[in-house]
Nucleic acid binder design. Structure first.
Lengths: 353, 353
DNA sequence: CCGTAATTTGTAAGCGCTTACATCCGGTGT
DNA sequence: ACACCGGATGTAAGCGCTTACAAATTACGG
């Protein structure tokens, strides 16, 4: 309350070189010689105000460098104009692109995105949820989260939710599924089309839905081409570069021959390429490599990486759009562009033996 | 106000499957049969409360799934427990790592980071500032921003500021300078040590302080080794991969011979490597390449990139630490670990002619 | 068993804003 | 000239919380 706040300011002012408490509506009103209601109306354009008063108020605002207090406004309005966003790690290139899409979209429409990293940990993710709920964000976008569908449905009772890479129907939730299976097929078919028969797969974390769908697409393409699926050629990774390195190393060590490598995501593919290089193998001459995601930097790899593009950026924008529709009370009618194969230079026909 | 808010809720409830308005302190108090002051005291641990009431209140909180409204609390307390962070682009790997450091540090200490992207645009950056100020964040970290020192000093009157990659002294501001010049020297000396004499430099955006300091280090190393500085070997880039590609292409096309390439940052180096590859040149055999930043993915390039490490992650953490000290009213006493050269495989001795 | 001090608890004001409702103004129509 | 109307302003309540201060309760010594 006021004593404390004032106190605080005093302290701050004394100790750091910090702020006078910022101007309030009331100060502006006094300065301009009108009531605070009038000022509020001018700021929000919620009612007609005579030009002279308007000028006076605008002058006062400029003079005092007034900025409305978002917390107070939020309290009065019962909304924060903020959308919470939960991801696993803000420093992953994958999430980075998605967040950028979300931020861009929302910001242009007067919303602010509040990002939180779940750090690949379910508990941590719950902590984020809790924090966002406490801040009374108007909605939450879960960008590739780990929370169970059950929990999500629970949270959806408290706040509108948009979740990516899921396919669940529940009131208050909109989910944006990515066609991972088709992507997996596309990648594998490309390899098969080049003449590869022994195609290894570097998987992600086992129970992750993205990973398993991509894996499914891989098997399906194999089956359709009449190529038997050899489980020995499937090794787990971790969605990161290091997992790709490890997996490839293991694959190589196992002695099971393969001429191509489909990786669950681009980062794994980066790792795979490095491991191949270390083993003295050339990509694509000795082993073709395909990734998934088409990260920005994939086109700048040496050689540029063949991959499956799902435009994470667009995925982010679409989540933002869906959220805003949800907030309007509409049922979102967003759909994603289809995944597509981007053929670059990390794939080639296998060497004749 | 209340009519509106209630109204709103009604609407929401009808149209989406959305929330009843969340429980308030008052509801908890009623449920537990105590006053709201008591509830508040229990939540914040600000005063002793008898065990039985405490139990009753805690039960009520759990039952209602109560979470304090951060906006209301912020309003009452005059602080938001939020630190605003301005960067250029949340999807850049460079900023991503920094933000991660900041987020990690702050979150563990009860603060939330609010990220905003300035999109490499000064005006946009001002918009971010404005937004953050409006939200009454407790402090703002400017992670490699473009705002002029003058403007910064101005803003610092309103809110404590931590800025990275600057060296300015002003009340209410703490700056964390990075030793770019030393880094530039290290990189260049390494190349010289390997026997290179014709070392090109891919610069960043011209007036960017980071870029010019690195350039200065480059020239100094050259000078100290008695190698004349050839301006023909210096070409501008843009801190991104594409700029590296372009710059290298131009360098190659110019016909000026060089055996090594020092790039203003890792992303430029990625681009350079690709351009070299496209030109049929091998790195490091034909041209050695050194970057700057040591992005996570640099160690997974093929070949792994030799670069100058300044741990952006640590830079982020340090900014967070400095901010918290500033908030305590202390003069921050943070210093960064020294930049250091990380020799990997993109550099080698030049080919004998 | 009572007075008094040391708790624990409740009451109410105030943080800065929005907006319903009351008030006040000049302009119509008759 | 007067009742009436519509639009511009002002007044004040309330958003959910913290906390100073008052009130109520407890504990204790004499």
């Amino acid at each position: 309350m006021s004593k404390r706040a004032a106190n605080n300011n005093l302290k701050k002012r004394a100790m750091t070189a910090a702020p006078d408490s910022p101007p309030t509506l009331e100060m502006v009103a006094k300065e301009a010689g009108v009531s605070i209601a009038t000022v509020s109306r001018i700021i929000n354009g919620t009612a007609k105000v005579s030009p002279e008063r308007k000028d006076a108020v605008e002058a006062a605002i400029a003079k005092l460098n007034f900025r409305p207090n978002a917390a107070a406004r939020g309290l009065a309005l019962g909304k924060s104009n903020t959308i919470g966003v939960i991801t696993q790690a803000i420093d992953s290139p994958f999430y980075g692109e998605g967040l950028r899409g979300i931020e861009d979209y929302l910001q242009q429409r007067g919303y602010t995105a509040l990002f939180m990293s779940g750090n690949w940990d379910e508990q941590d993710e719950e902590r984020c949820m809790s924090e966002l709920l406490s801040r009374r964000v108007d909605g939450i976008i879960i960008f590739s989260g780990r929370l169970q569908d059950r929990q999500l449905a629970q949270y959806a009772k408290q706040v509108p939710l948009v979740v990516t890479a899921r396919n669940l129907k529940a009131p208050g939730i909109f989910s944006l599924p990515v066609d991972d299976e088709r992507g997996g097929m596309l990648a594998t078919q490309h390899l098969i089309g080049l003449g590869h028969r022994r195609i290894a797969f570097i998987a992600g974390i086992l129970d992750h839905p993205d990973a398993s769908l991509r894996y499914k697409g891989y098997r399906r393409a194999l089956a359709e081409a009449g190529i038997p699926h050899d489980p020995k050629l499937v090794v787990p990774g971790d969605f990161h570069e290091e997992g790709g390195v490890e997996a490839t190393r293991r694959l190589l060590a196992s002695g099971h021959k393969f001429t191509a490598l489909f990786c669950v995501n681009d980062q794994s593919a980066y790792g795979a390429c490095l491991a191949l290089y270390r083993a003295g193998l050339n990509c694509p001459r000795d082993v073709s490599v395909v990734g998934f995601d088409d990260l920005h930097s994939s086109s700048y790899r040496v050689p540029p990486l063949t991959t499956v593009r799902q435009s994470i950026r667009v995925l982010g924008e679409s989540s933002g759009a869906a959220m805003l529709q949800l907030l309007q009370g509409e049922q979102p009618n967003i759909s994603l562009p289809q995944v597509q194969l981007v053929v670059r230079e990390s794939t080639a026909a296998p060497q004749p033996d």
